[in-house]
Each structure stands twice: as structure tokens, then as C-alpha cells.
């Protein structure tokens, strides 16, 4: 029916990690490439530190901005716990790209709740898909000298699976960031793109 493929993306993370900017950039690339696109964020009431989820839908014609449970094509998680919290949204056989980094919530630090082990994380993800990519986003972004480039690193990893050109990504990234950050972020983007070819669990 539709002449363009469908990409339903779910970006999850913790407030302050730059997920919303990342989803804005994806929307911009899709618009440039001639797709219909809708995106929506759910962030609750906190400035920082709460769960943040963005839905991005890209295809010929999009109606609902929210993706149905179990229909997400690619889950892009900026934090492990926030990855598995939304794994039920991933479609069977979908792609999960997870930043291999833990940000324990306050309840864990207070000893009231437990942070899941890596084995539990993998077990949950594997219930849904074998296509799991654990990427060292926070580590690589920190090595680049600015942990805040994590979101662009993650976009680099995501970009391998989307039909947009690197120059289109570059234009969209530059549109959303000040000029002094362009070079660093394009390096992060390239690093994220390269990473996906190396890490497949």
C-alpha cells in the first residue's frame, strides 16, 4: 500500500541524557528525506533524572504519534534499565541498541530496590529478539572528551539501520547544535556508526 518502508523507533533513557534532542534530529532527517514523520516525548514532571521516552514514527503516512505495544522496530536505549523497562514495546525480532551503562535510580542507592544484573538484562531482551547491540556509548563519549555527545553517538549506531545518508544526518545534527560542537559531535556520530559493526551479542 505505502511506497515507503516503516520505521517505528522508541528512544528511552534518563532525563538529562539528551534523548529528546536525538529524537528531534531523527525527525528532521526523515523530513529532509521526504518521509512523513511524527514524534512525541513522554517526560513527566522532573527537570532531570526521571524516565524519558520518545516515540518516532517514519513512513509514507503516519497517523498516531504513539507506537503500539509490541510494534517498535528499533529500541534505542541510552541506559540499560530504561532499555528493559520498555522491551515489551519491541516487536518480536526487532532491533535493540542499548548503551552499556547503568544509572542506578535513587531507590537503588537507598537499598529499597535492586538494579538488574547484566545477565537479567540480556535475558529480558532475548525474550523478544536476538538482534541485540550493546554499545559502549557513555564510555566512548567520555573518551571523546564530552559525555554529552552520548546522544549523537547513539544516533550514529542507529543510523546504520535507517535509509538516510550521512550528509543528511550531518545537516540535521548541525541544525540542532551550535557550530562549536559540530566537529566533536560528527566524530561521536562516526564512532557510533562504526561501533555497531563490531558489537553484536
Amino acid at each position: 500500500m505505502s511506497s515507503k518502508p516503516k520505521f517505528d523507533l522508541l528512544l528511552t533513557g534518563v532525563g538529562g541524557q539528551g534523548n529528546i534532542l536525538a529524537s528531534d534530529i531523527i525527525g528532521e532527517v526523515a523530513l529532509t528525506a521526504g518521509y512523513d514523520v511524527k514524534k512525541t516525548d513522554t517526560l513527566g514532571m522532573a527537570q532531570r533524572g526521571g524516565s524519558v521516552v520518545s516515540h518516532v514514527r517514519i513512513t509514507e503516512k503516519v497517523y498516531s504519534p504513539l507506537i503500539q505495544e509490541g510494534a517498535v522496530d528499533i529500541l534505542l536505549a541510552f541506559e540499560k534499565l530504561e532499555g528493559i523497562r520498555w522491551v515489551n514495546y519491541l516487536r518480536p525480532g526487532g532491533i535493540a541498541i542499548i548503551n552499556d551503562h547503568a544509572l542506578p535510580p535513587l531507590s537503588v542507592n537507598l537499598g529499597a530496590e535492586k538494579y538488574p544484573s547484566d545477565a537479567e538484562v540480556m535475558q529480558l531482551l532475548k525474550q523478544r529478539t536476538g538482534k541485540i547491540y550493546l554499545v559502549p556509548g557513555t564510555l566512548k563519549a567520555t573518551e571523546l572528551g564530552n559525555a554529552r555527545t552520548l546522544n549523537i553517538f547513539m544516533l550514529g549506531s542507529l543510523s546504520v539501520f535507517l535509509p538516510f545518508t550521512v550528509p543528511d544526518w550531518q545537516t540535521a545534527i548541525q541544525k540542532h547544535l551550535p557550530e562549536k560542537l559540530w566537529k566533536l559531535n560528527m566524530t561521536a556520530f562516526a564512532a557510533g556508526r562504526k561501533e555497531i559493526e563490531n558489537v553484536h551479542v
Partner: peptide, 18 residues
């Protein structure tokens, strides 16, 4: 369609004072 249940005991992340 069959739904996948995420364990209820997963640590929550409510909004916080910064």
C-alpha cells in the same frame, strides 16, 4: 497479539529533586 510482561519488580525511576 501476545504481550511480553516486564517484571513488576524492576527498579522504578520517579522524578526527583536535582
Amino acid at each position: 497479539p501476545e504481550k511480553l510482561t516486564v517484571p513488576a519488580e524492576l527498579a522504578k525511576r520517579p522524578p526527583l529533586l536535582c
